[in-house]
Structures are given as structure tokens and as C-alpha cells.
């Protein structure tokens, strides 16, 4: 085989291998499984419903206009996620020793709950005298939960609501600035406190189904970002140039040979 044909075969092999490697990487690199609900209703104003407090009926805005607020939706009969949610939140707040101004407004989304049930619930966590915590009920449950996209489903078999553990961050204008679904680490809580206090926090858009080339993919299992296909796109210009230059070298050699002949 002469050197010219050998080179031609080599270039073809490099090209085919590159295409195969690229297509395999595209197929496997973008797998992700995210809960997109946290992004819904962000920067919308919460429904300004009337709530029942120890001091009587008042508008929700009287709470969030005084201080940035974390809204927690629970019901007292819950033997699922509500107790761990409140317990974890109060522990995190104590441990973080937060100096920021904020309140935690715990609202029952169960029409069966009375204000007295909420008072007992607060005592269960030793929060009844903590000025930061307010336990209330409301007769306007539907507009409230709809405005934060919270959708509990009543399961008549177990006589319980099937629902998410949801924290909603409200700034002093009533805007939903951050939502946290599930019991999460203290760094998430700190980010929420920054958001509701209108402080800048670094952010990066979550990968979406129609975002094919992201630079990094967050792995929820390890909690780490991993390199993704987008960074491979960054190598494409060098690779394409390499192929162009190889072709030009070949062409140049051919022309020089012709000139010599």
C-alpha cells in the first residue's frame, strides 16, 4: 500500500471514530431526572388570603409586608411528612443561628383544622413562644394552595392527604422568590433566606428537556456537577479545524507533486 492511500485510510478512520464517539456520548451524557415544580410560579405574587391568627383575622400581606416570610403548608392530623418537615426546619433554624429578619408562617391546608389544633401543634415542637413562628388557619385554602401550585390529594382509604413537603419563600412584596420541595440541606434554606431578603444569590438554570447541550449535569445522587456534552461542543472547533488542515495538507502535497512532475 503506498503512503498516500495509507494516509487517506487513516484520515477516514479518524473521522469515523470521532463521529461514533460523539454520537455515543450524546446518547448517554444527557440523562437527568429533575423535579421541575420548584420553578413553577416563581416571581408571582401569592394570593392575599385572609388568615385566622391568635390576634384575629388578618390579611396574609400583614405578615409578609412586616418581614420576609417562609410559608409552610401542613395539617395537624398528618402522620407522614409534616412532622419531620417542621422538626427539621426548626432544628436547621436553631443550628444556623440566623441573624436575618424573617418569619415562618405555618398554615394548615386541612379545613378540619382549627386554630386550637395549630396551637397544640406548635407546642408539640416547643415553638409556641417563638416570635418567629406563627401557626394559623384559613378558610381560603383553595386560592392559597393554587397560587403556590400545591396540590394535596385526599386518600380516603388511609384518611390522609397525599402531598409534598413544601416551603415557599415570600419577599416583603409577596413575591414567591424560591420554593423548596422535600426535606433538604441547610444550604438550601440559607439560599431561600437570601432570596426572600432580596439578596443576590448565584444561580444556574436547571437543565431542561429541550436543552440538549449543557456544560454540566447535576447528579442528584452524588450531589456533584459532572462534565456534560456541552463541553464536548467546545472541542468541536479545534477538531473541525484539524480535519480542514489535514485536508489542506493532502491537497498541498498533491499540488506540489503535480508541480514537480
Amino acid at each position: 500500500m503506498d503512503i498516500y492511500r495509507f494516509n487517506e485510510k487513516m484520515y477516514k478512520s479518524i473521522f469515523i471514530c470521532t463521529i461514533v464517539l460523539l454520537s455515543n456520548y450524546i446518547s448517554f451524557a444527557q440523562e437527568s431526572n429533575y423535579n421541575y415544580d420548584e420553578e413553577k410560579d416563581i416571581y408571582k405574587v401569592i394570593s392575599n388570603v385572609t388568615i385566622e391568627t391568635e390576634q384575629g383575622n388578618q390579611k396574609l400581606s400583614t405578615i409578609y409586608e412586616t418581614s420576609p416570610t417562609i410559608l409552610v403548608l401542613i395539617y395537624t392530623r398528618c402522620y407522614g411528612i409534616c412532622n419531620p418537615l417542621i422538626s427539621n426546619l426548626s432544628e436547621q433554624i436553631q443550628q444556623l443561628d440566623i441573624k436575618k429578619d424573617f418569619r415562618v408562617l405555618v398554615v394548615s391546608f386541612d379545613a378540619a383544622d382549627r386554630l386550637s389544633d395549630m396551637e397544640r401543634y406548635a407546642q408539640q415542637f416547643d415553638l409556641q413562644n417563638d416570635a418567629r413562628w406563627i401557626f394559623v388557619t384559613t378558610k381560603q385554602i383553595k386560592p392559597l394552595i393554587e397560587s403556590v401550585n400545591f396540590n394535596p390529594k385526599w386518600d380516603s382509604t388511609i384518611q390522609q392527604f397525599d402531598h409534598n413537603a413544601l416551603l415557599v419563600g415570600l419577599n416583603t412584596n409577596g413575591y414567591i422568590t424560591k420554593k423548596i420541595i422535600g426535606i433538604r440541606g441547610s444550604n438550601e434554606l440559607q439560599a431561600m433566606l437570601k432570596e426572600i431578603n432580596n439578596e443576590f444569590i448565584v444561580s444556574y438554570p436547571l437543565p431542561r428537556k429541550n436543552m440538549l447541550f449543557s456544560c454540566f449535569t447535576y447528579n442528584p445522587t452524588t450531589g456533584k456537577s459532572e462534565l456534560s456534552i456541552g463541553l464536548l461542543v467546545m472541542l468541536a472547533p479545534a477538531l473541525i479545524t484539524f480535519i480542514i488542515v489535514l485536508s489542506l495538507i493532502k491537497l498541498g502535497k498533491k499540488q506540489r507533486k503535480t508541480l514537480v512532475k
Partner: peptide
């Protein structure tokens, strides 16, 4: 029309490169 969106970091990397 929204069927494909870009990753801002990738686009920024490409733009500055």
C-alpha cells in the same frame, strides 16, 4: 419556537472563545 433552548454557560464559553 421553544423546542430547543441553549445552555447560557455553553453559549458564553463559545462567545468568548
Amino acid at each position: 419556537n421553544g423546542g430547543f433552548v441553549n445552555d447560557p454557560l455553553l453559549v458564553k464559553n463559545l462567545t468568548y472563545f
